[in-house]
Amino acid sequence: MEWQRLIVSYIVGFVLLNVLLGLMAYMTWFERRVLARMQHRVGPNRTGPFGLLQPIADGIKLLAKEDIVPANADRLVFLVAPLLSFALAPLGAAVIPFGDTLHLFGIDIPLLVADINVAVLYVLALGSVGVYGIILGGYASGNRYSLLGALRSTAQVISYELVLGLSLVGVLILSGSLSLQDILREQQRSLVLGPLTLPNWYILSQPLAFALFLIAAVAETNRAPFDLPEAETELVAGYFTEYSGFRFSFYFLAEYINMIVVSLLAATLFLGGIDGPIADGVWWLAIKALFFLFFYVWLRATLPRFRYDQLMGLAWKVLLPLALLNIALTGLVRLWGIGAL
């Protein structure tokens, strides 16, 4: 039975990985189309209907490009760093529940790859290791723009990782578990507020944490307005200035996978994941995640970029105290709720 579970897990993981890679390719299409619409442009529309074949054309183009290693690069690290970034990105999706257990051919197929009881911490750990792809790539390029990009990125990811983690503590206090499945189960209850009966989604009970999580997640994925590590108007392309061909696209794709994973996570943690008003299922998760992805693109179209010191100031002087406040308040409410006060 152990073996059977393992094999089912592998199969689900394999399917999920492929779906994720396909989604990521179409995320680039989605972003370009939405961004174009927001900017009075058309966006890619020549390759296939509505430009739907554009990601494939891009992929072929990038594969066919020369893979250049600069003369003064740290060769081995330079070659490995983008792989590290790309390989770590989809792992976060492994703990996100996509639905209830499926019964097929007499086998129970849980619609998530791994039900880890420290799932939230696992995602945070992935985020903190993921920075190595950026920092090593920036260091190994032997370019000062890359180095500055890597330095910015390191400082940014460490700071916002902290905010991200602390913003989740409120949710963890309420749910009493680090497992995403448990958190999801807690959210499927209903929240009775006088005459109103609402779903127990944590966005309602933890609005501050949700806002903090959203801000920190945008910063963690290096997206506008926190895209300083790759700020093209300052650092040319930041840590991947020297990369070309498919190694460049590894960084690029890792960013998009991270966006998708973070969106799924946000939907699961705060919006009840697969829970919906009618017909619970994976489509609700997709709709919620799509909303976050749209939000990402929207931000990019609207906001200017922060400056490095302002970014750090925001994390340490505004978001961190707010996160601590949120923890304290949630803790007090929780203690009061169980009658300890």
Partner: peptide, 10 residues
């Protein structure tokens, strides 16, 4: 891995 060594590299 995520904090201490990143700072060392930094």
């Amino acid at each position: 891995a995520g904090a201490v060594i990143v700072l060392v590299v930094f």
